[in-house]
């Protein structure tokens, strides 16, 4: 029996290590189908302006209730600390949760985090009782400052949001893992293929957060299942302790007793 310790995020015990975004699905039914086939227990959501007549958000709210998932609201689109703080407060009231995926975007082309604003916003939100999931880079010093600010989870990016490139800097992410051995780490953003998620899990990440790779695929519900298996495979591989790489070949078949062998 494989000992696969459950994931704990801010005291919440989760059996799935996939955190799933809810945007860009072809239809609400495919979104729900993808949530189910991924077996995720945490879905990310956002807040946007609502019209008093169209009621789009109200329909989405009803859909969310069907998911039976823990809700992780984000501050996507925020470019200043002030915007992020106020968006977080609105999200807390809307979704009745103190969980917040904190994004403070510093560049429109790469959507990379403004890590200075991120730390400042994280400090303030933690003081206000939020449980902050910061979308950050793989910079160790920023990670330390986020922990000092009160974060108990770190979410370094794999690649720019929506790029699907996979882990752009796997060595840095490995260092990050080794540097923060006791902190739950989630690779957030840039995942394109299930193998990318497996790679993140193989190097010891605790979970993966993704959206576009499933939602924008040809068959989201099938891709959701692929990611669920890939993340589980990567987790098992990490627990099984992979072999060290070698520079030269080493025979796997025993050499002793080889016919015609002359030493």
């Amino acid at each position: 029996m494989i000992k696969n310790n459950a994931l704990k995020l801010y005291g919440e015990t989760l059996s799935s290590r996939l955190l799933l975004g809810t945007a860009q699905y072809p239809s609400p039914q495919i979104l729900i189908g993808s949530i189910q086939s991924s077996a995720t227990q945490v879905i990310t959501v956002s807040v946007r302006r609502e019209s008093g007549t169209s009621r789009d958000g109200q329909r989405f709210w009803q859909l969310l209730k069907q998911s039976n998932c823990k809700i992780l609201p984000n501050t996507a689109g925020c470019r200043t600390v002030k915007e992020a703080l106020n968006t977080a407060q609105m999200a807390r009231e809307l979704f009745n949760t103190d969980w917040i995926k904190l994004e403070v975007i510093g560049n429109d082309d790469t959507l990379q985090p403004d890590v200075f604003g991120l730390v400042e916003a994280a400090r303030e939100l933690c003081q206000q009782g939020f449980k902050v999931f910061p979308y950050t880079t793989d910079d160790l010093v920023v990670g330390e400052q986020l922990l000092a600010a009160g974060c108990e989870v770190l979410m370094p990016w794999g690649a720019p949001i929506g790029s699907g490139r996979g882990l752009q800097n796997p060595k840095a992410l490995e260092s990050y893992r080794h540097y923060f051995p006791e902190i739950p780490l989630v690779v957030d953003a840039g995942i394109g293929l299930p193998s990318h998620a497996t790679q993140a899990m193989e190097i010891g990440y605790d979970a993966v957060l993704l959206n576009t790779a499933i939602a924008d695929s040809g068959q989201p519900t099938l891709m959701a299942k692929a990611f669920a298996h890939a993340i589980e495979a990567g987790r098992f591989a990490y627990l099984a302790q992979p072999i060290a790489q070698r520079d030269m070949a080493q025979p796997s078949t025993p050499v002793a007793g080889t016919p015609f062998w002359i030493s």
Binding site: V47, G52, Q58, W61, L64, A76, L94
Partner: peptide
């Protein structure tokens, strides 16, 4: 005034 509601997000 800003009035917001739940919306899909990543």
């Amino acid at each position: 005034i800003e009035i917001v509601a739940p919306m899909q997000g990543g």
